[in-house]
Simulated scan of single mutants.
Amino acid sequence: MVGRAARENRCKGTNFLDFLRILRQESNEDVCDECIARLPDELRDALRYGAIVRGGWYPIRWYGALHTTARLTGAPQGFARTVGRISTIDDLSGGIYSSFLRIVSPGFLISGAARLFNRYYELGTMDVLESRRGFVRVGCRGCVGFDANIWQDVLGGCEGGLQAARAHDLRIRLVTGGDDGDEHASIEAYFSEQ
């Protein structure tokens, strides 16, 4: 796009609010308070004064800053992935989804999750590239502004979705991309089904 500035990616407010709830659960209130205190001013004030709402859209760089600051203030090792896993399981365990999960296969659930990717991230897509019993491979592209922490969050979300759909003996990994500045990633998961 010559002559036009690239559009900044945004993510949903639910990402921020779930992140802080899970940080409190997985560490403690002091770590969460320290994390908020050390955030960039604009983000810190938005969180402290309730300006971030579940359905709102906020800069992806804010979400990256939240992840980075949490790591620096005592979040447990692997926390980015934990956030994605727990928030996805929580999202899927309520209401109509809980009944749905009893009848769908893990691979089918991931194909649905790929369609829901843009409920959480404004730019970028997730596509199921291959799916068969006990295996799924997804590709993400156009994920402007993602860093390694956000990719780990996405990986954890895939893991949580598969676990919610009763996948066992789960092995999941980034195959390509998924690092700081990467706008793409390929994720593979191997699992057994009940």
Rank of each mutant, 00 (worst) to 15 (best):
156 G>I: 04
60 I>E: 12
129 L>Y: 01
14 T>P: 00
89 I>G: 05
150 I>E: 02
53 V>A: 13
94 G>E: 06
70 A>F: 05
125 T>V: 13
178 G>V: 10
169 D>M: 10
55 G>A: 13
38 R>N: 15
173 R>G: 08
19 F>M: 03
58 Y>S: 08
7 R>E: 14
122 E>I: 04
41 D>N: 09
185 A>H: 06
10 R>A: 10
44 R>A: 13
36 I>C: 12
137 R>E: 15
7 R>G: 05
98 S>P: 00
71 R>E: 09
115 R>G: 12
83 V>M: 11
104 V>I: 15
186 S>G: 11
32 C>L: 15
193 E>C: 07
76 P>C: 02
143 C>W: 00
141 R>K: 10
184 H>W: 11
183 E>F: 06
1 M>D: 08
138 V>I: 13
9 N>E: 05
63 Y>T: 05
51 A>I: 04
99 S>M: 13
2 V>E: 10
149 N>H: 08
77 Q>N: 06
191 F>T: 12
141 R>N: 10
92 L>C: 03
105 S>D: 07
38 R>M: 10
16 F>T: 03
102 R>C: 01
129 L>M: 13
131 S>C: 12
164 A>I: 00
165 A>M: 04
38 R>E: 14
32 C>A: 15
150 I>K: 00
189 A>T: 01
153 D>G: 00
71 R>N: 04
75 A>N: 01
29 E>F: 04
190 Y>F: 15
110 I>F: 11
32 C>Y: 01
88 T>V: 11
47 L>K: 05
17 L>K: 04
6 A>I: 09
1 M>A: 12
60 I>G: 02
32 C>D: 00
39 L>V: 10
154 V>W: 09
49 Y>G: 09
29 E>A: 12
94 G>S: 09
173 R>A: 11
20 L>K: 00
16 F>R: 02
11 C>A: 11
165 A>W: 07
29 E>R: 08
58 Y>K: 07
30 D>Y: 02
46 A>P: 05
185 A>T: 05
40 P>S: 11
29 E>D: 14
127 D>T: 10
34 E>Q: 13
58 Y>R: 07
12 K>R: 14
14 T>Q: 07
6 A>C: 01
163 Q>Y: 01
31 V>M: 08
55 G>I: 05
81 R>G: 04
97 Y>F: 15
135 F>D: 01
42 E>H: 12
144 V>T: 07
14 T>W: 02
56 G>C: 11
135 F>K: 10
179 D>S: 14
104 V>L: 13
173 R>W: 09
144 V>K: 03
91 D>I: 03
164 A>Y: 02
173 R>P: 00
109 L>M: 15
142 G>P: 01
130 E>H: 09
149 N>C: 06
137 R>G: 06
89 I>W: 00
156 G>W: 02
174 L>C: 15
125 T>H: 07
111 S>T: 14
96 I>M: 10
109 L>A: 12
147 D>S: 06
34 E>Y: 08
78 G>S: 03
141 R>C: 05
118 N>L: 11
